[in-house]
Design a protein around this nucleic acid. Structure first.
Lengths: 236, 236
DNA sequence: CTCTTTACTTACAATACTGTAAGTAGCAAG
DNA sequence: CTTGCTACTTACAGTATTGTAAGTAAAGAG
């Protein structure tokens, strides 16, 4: 009766396992991210996250100091992985087609709920975190697109803002779609229509690529030497 | 100084004033809406709202039953006024120009923070409230635009989805802009650029109206009505 | 084996928030 | 003035949640 259960008398309540700090933290961050995506930042409860991971809530405080520390860590990691994913997707040269690229970006943004998360962070004021540097993904993509456009003789350097705005529109629309897409579709009477979302995105990609292929539009002070697209954009 | 305060011996703590229920409720809803816009649904505290209005927090419970009752009332009123404002703006015939209309809609959506509020409600799952009927504003606008487009001989009935998607894009982009606009602009390296937001919106309006004026793309491929000015086919 | 470190536990403190109970007072009607 | 209604108040109950204190045990170092 001295060692009734085992020699290391495990307390009835908890089988204690001790993981390396990094691993435990990763597990906690995973669980917290899940909760964040599901219910928003304000609804994040330490006890729930702890329960998900299988630890007690002070364990989380041990690793992250405070609830806010956890939040910071989660958002930092989420934004970092989002950026990584985006860059990888954009750099992926499998298909340089505009539609496919847009669809890839949308998947990256929407699939794991990243857009929702970012939206939440922005709305709660935590989205301003990117300190100084920030992620200039939009600028980078615009540079790329604009260079290709110029190489094709469809724009002049002066039209850069048109390229930039086009990419900004893509980003903005993708975000908006990820957040209020269903509502907009409902407001458009497309609730019954499955695949309406995908059709819309394909349509959008078409619009954007067509615009890019055609050349910059009436830039107010257009001198005579404006390089404009050949008559009918012969996009096959 | 015998009767120091007034003949109606006001208790030191609270000067009690009794307002008609409707008026009090309106004041409470106003304050709650402010708080909602400022900090999000989860951050709504009865005591804070009560303090804003100048009553005690059980007074709010008296009028709205529970915190959730207050939330429902606020969202219901907000969505109703948003719809009203939108319809009024859209019906306003002062300027049928696309750019001006878009700007008006944006103002309606963005000015009072309506877009943020709706986004929050959507994200927290309260945005599904429009019961059954819903607001088919997008559909209505698309109908209008499409009719005008057909009257101008720029589209066939079959191209309706193109018109619909165009309006959906406007709505989605406006929403996205209202929420993540600053971030997108930052990512585009336009932080220092004031008025960049307005320029972007003007550009967007131009793109959309141009698209609508040109006629539907690939869909029916009606080539006859290419009203596009392809005169300056000369390029370097 | 002993020692040190630290990941993790239980128990508890402190606070904040929603909702309830009971009573008070303003205003209109009789 | 009295009466009734109800907008509103103070006091409090109950609970949820973050954070702290102190101790326990797992794993490696010596």
């Amino acid at each position: 009766m001295s060692s009734q259960a085992s020699k290391r008398s495990r307390k009835a309540s908890a089988a204690r396992r001790r993981r390396p700090a990094q691993e435990a933290q990763r597990a906690i961050l995973d669980a917290a991210e899940q909760r964040l995506l599901a219910a928003g930042p304000d609804a994040l409860r330490l006890q729930e996250v702890a329960a998900d991971v299988g630890v007690s809530h002070p364990a989380i405080l041990h690793h992250f100091g405070s609830r806010e520390g956890l939040m910071r860590a989660v958002t930092a990691r989420a934004l970092a992985t989002l950026e990584t994913d985006l860059v990888r997707r954009l750099a992926d040269p499998t298909d340089v087609n505009g539609a496919a690229l847009l669809e890839r970006v949308f998947e990256t943004l929407g699939d794991r709920g990243h857009a929702r998360l970012v939206a939440w962070l922005v709305l709660t004021g935590l989205g301003d975190v990117p300190p100084g540097a920030g992620v200039r993904v939009v600028r980078a993509v615009a540079d790329l697109v604009h260079r290709r456009r110029m190489a094709a003789g469809r724009a002049t350097p002066a039209d850069f803002e048109d390229s930039l705005f086009t990419i900004m529109l893509a980003a903005t629309a993708l975000f908006g779609d990820a957040i209020v897409g269903p509502q907009v579709r409902a407001s458009a009477g497309l609730t019954a229509d499955r695949h309406a979302d995908q059709r819309f995105r394909v349509w959008l990609a078409g619009l954007l690529t067509e615009h890019l292929d055609r050349g910059a539009p009436t830039r107010a002070r257009a001198p005579a030497q404006k390089a404009r697209a050949s008559r009918t954009a012969r996009r096959s």
